[in-house]
Design a protein around this nucleic acid. Sequence first.
DNA 1: AATCCCCCCAACCGCTCAGTT
DNA 2: GAACTGAGCGGTTGGGGGGAT
Length: 290
Amino acid sequence: MGRAPCCEKEGLRRGTWSPEEDQVLADYIAQHGHPNWRALPRHAGEFGISLFLSGRRATEYQRMPGLMVAVSAGLLRCGKSCRLRWINYLRPDIKRGNFTADEEDRIIRLHQSLGNRWSAIAAQLPGRTDNEIKNVWHTNLKKRVEDDQKGTAAIGGESRQKSGKQAKAKSATANGEVKHEQLTASPERSSSSMTCSTVTVTDSAAAVSSSPADNAANTSASNGHELVKEVSSAVVIDDSFWSSTDLAEVMDLGALDTDLSLKMSSRNEDMEFWLNILHEAGEMRDLAIL
DNA sequence: AATCCCCCCAACCGCTCAGTT
DNA sequence: GAACTGAGCGGTTGGGGGGAT
């Protein structure tokens, strides 16, 4: 008997995750964890709706219309895709940015002893994912090792440096000029393990937050491609903040500004507007599933 | 300025393994 | 022990950015 697919393929989104999807997923996992990846996409959608109805994500929903669609439709992703996105991208403890020379050397040594067991190698490098290590091996380290084995020391030394193209891209992120694709729901995405890191949030996201935790909640939850475009003035959060703060705590939805619901209550017209969108999006979901 | 081409990396696919019924 | 499910792992791919021409 053939193995059943991990999920229904029809109606599911593929490809790059949108910031809205990231937020739905991160919100849900921060609150509920991920006991069951298979069921997570549906539950995440339901949870997102409850957030909307409670007004806890008022600002985000107003700023990101796509978020409502993403939420109301549920996460139209298979559980496997959600798991991968979380593990490789959204997890709070992921260290982003360049691999240090020490990390690269460790990867090479570990690869010599462990082979292509990327998860085992990743376990020895806190903050690094197996996928990331696998990528850096195939794009950089493998060639370096091969060159070294050929005895071409000069090339080997050269290969330690990123290619000019890559180096430029990385330096851009180190300067806080986060590229469209490279901004992720993980703040460290824009940081380097060797350099400073910055986190940018929009004015609106910062405006509704009265505490550092709230700021972080908005930052963690609302960063995304579109948000970068929208940045008019950045709020910079130091690396130390992220390293000392647990995302689950940061994203404790109960800790969000309690005045938010009051703010929402003064926007009954907006609520009605969004409920209409919710309704329409629900119909869209039904169509997608069909 | 336009086009080509290389390279990076996020994400998908298919498989295995472990747990459950 | 068989059947099935879900999680995790490693290989692979394709989109897109950016340098080269």
